[in-house]
Simulated assay, not measured.
Amino acid sequence: MGTKVSYPEEVKLKAIKMRLAGVPVKEVMEELNIRNRTQLKTWMKWYRNGELHRLAQPVGKQYAFGKGPDYDSETARLRSENRYLKQQVEVFKKVRGIGKEVAPKVVIQLVEELRGNMTIGEICGHLGVSRSSYYRWKAQEKNETPKEVRDRQIGDLCKRHKFLYGYRKIAELYPGACEKTVQRVMQKHGWQCRVKVKKRKRTGQPAYVAPNLLARDFTASKPLEKLLTDITYLPFGQSMMYLSSILDVYNGEIVAQTIGFTQDTAFVLDTLHQLPDLPEGCVLHSDQGTVYTSYDYQKAVKEKRIIMSMSRKGTPADNSPIETFHSSLKSETFYLDGIHRTSNAHVIQIVEEYITYYNNIRIQTKLNSQSPVQYRQLAA
C-alpha cells in the first residue's frame, strides 16, 4: 500500500485557483508536486459543492457528506465558518488589480498588514500562495530589479518637482526611458501632474487706450524685444498683497518684479525702473488698468523709449503668458501646499523663491526642455 501524502491547505487552494484559471491538470500537478490526479479532482468537487472546509481535514479523515470537522455545537461551527469568510473578505478587499497571480510585493505587504489578525499560513492560503514562496519573496525583497530601479528614479524626479511635471517633462529629465514608458510608470503609481484649476473672467466691450500692437503674437527673435506686465493678488498674508511683474516673451523669463501692499502707480513704476537697458523698438504690453494708463506711467514709458501696447478691455487672453505665470505661481506653491493664511514675510519668501526656481530650474517644453535662463544663455 502506498504512503498517504498530506498536502497543506494552501496548496489545495492554489491548485483549485490554477484549475479555475484554465491551467491544465498536468501542469498543476507538476508545479505543486501533486502525485495523484484523483486527488485534484476531489478538491475541485469539494469546491463546486461549497465544502471548502474539507480542505483542512487531516489525512485519512473523511467527514460524512455535508458535514465538516467535529464541533462542540452548531454555534461553534457557524463561528468557524464566519471567521473563515471574514478572513477572505479582509484579504481580498485589500487586493486591487493583481491579475491572475498575486504579485510578490502585494503578498509581502498584505502579510505585514494582516499578520496581527491571522497567521501567515492563513493569509497565504486565502491568496493561493505557499508559505515557502512568501518567505522566498521576503528574502529577495531587498534585491531591486532594473525596472524597480527605473520606477524608483522616476518617482524621485516626480517628488523633487512636487508632481508639477507631466510625463513628457519627466522623460526629458530621465533619458533612460521613452515617453510612453514614463507615462505608464507614472500612471501605475499615481504620479501624474496635478491639474490646475482653470479660471475664467467675464468679458466686456473692447476699448482702446493704446493700440494692441502685440495682437497675441507671443513670439520674439531676441531678448527684451517684447515684454508683458500685469498685477496679481496675493491674499495669503496678514494683509492683502500684490505682485507686479514683467515677463520677457522671448524665453518666458521674469525680468522684474515688485511685491507691495498698495496697487498704485508708484508700485508699477518700481517694477518698470528695474528693467535693464532695452533695445530700440521694445514693446511693453499691459491691460488697461488705471495704473498703466496714468500720466506718470506713460511718461516713464516714453522716457525709456518703450512702445506701449494694451489689451482690449476684458480680454485676458491678449496677455496670456503672464496670466499663466501668475496662475502657475499660486497653483504650484500656495494652493498646492494648502497655504491659505500665513505671515507677510512668508508670502514674500515663497514668491521670491518660486520666481528664482521658475527662471533658473523649471524647464519648459517650448524652450526645448530648458529653463528660461538656460535657454537665453545658450542662445547667446
Rank of each mutant, 00 (worst) to 15 (best):
E144R: 12
I123Y: 04
E101C: 01
L114E: 01
R48T: 09
A76K: 00
E51G: 07
T42E: 15
K41M: 15
Q88A: 12
K26L: 03
G68R: 11
R35T: 14
A76T: 06
K147Q: 05
K41W: 15
N33V: 06
Q153M: 05
Y135M: 09
F92P: 10
D151C: 03
L78C: 14
V106R: 04
N143F: 03
E31M: 03
E148R: 11
S73R: 02
V111Q: 07
R48C: 11
Q57G: 11
K138Q: 10
R37Y: 11
I123K: 10
E81F: 07
L110E: 00
G99W: 04
I98M: 08
L114G: 02
R35A: 12
K93D: 06
K162L: 07
L32I: 14
L78P: 05
K138H: 01
K94E: 12
R96D: 13
M118C: 06
E30M: 06
K100T: 14
E31G: 09
G66S: 09
W46P: 12
P58K: 00
S132V: 05
K159R: 01
V95I: 02
I123G: 11
Q87C: 11
K26C: 14
R152C: 03
V23L: 04
G50V: 00
E27Y: 01
T145F: 04
E51C: 11
Y135S: 06
S130F: 00
T38P: 06
K61P: 04
M118Y: 07
Q62Y: 14
G66R: 04
M29K: 08
E27M: 03
F163L: 01
E27S: 06
E122F: 10
Y71V: 02
C124A: 13
G60R: 08
R37I: 14
T119E: 08
V59S: 10
K94W: 02
E31D: 14
L40A: 14
K67V: 12
G50K: 12
V25S: 05
K138W: 08
P58N: 06
G60P: 11
G99H: 04
L52D: 05
R131P: 01
L32A: 04
Q39N: 15
H126T: 15
P146V: 07
E101T: 10
V106S: 09
K26N: 13
A76H: 07
G50W: 10
H53N: 11
M118L: 06
P146C: 02
Q140H: 03
Y134H: 10
S73L: 09
E31H: 05
V95H: 02
P146L: 07
S73P: 02
R37V: 14
G125A: 00
T119Q: 06
E27F: 07
E113K: 01
Q62L: 15
K105E: 13
T75N: 05
R37S: 12
G60S: 00
K105R: 12
V106Y: 00
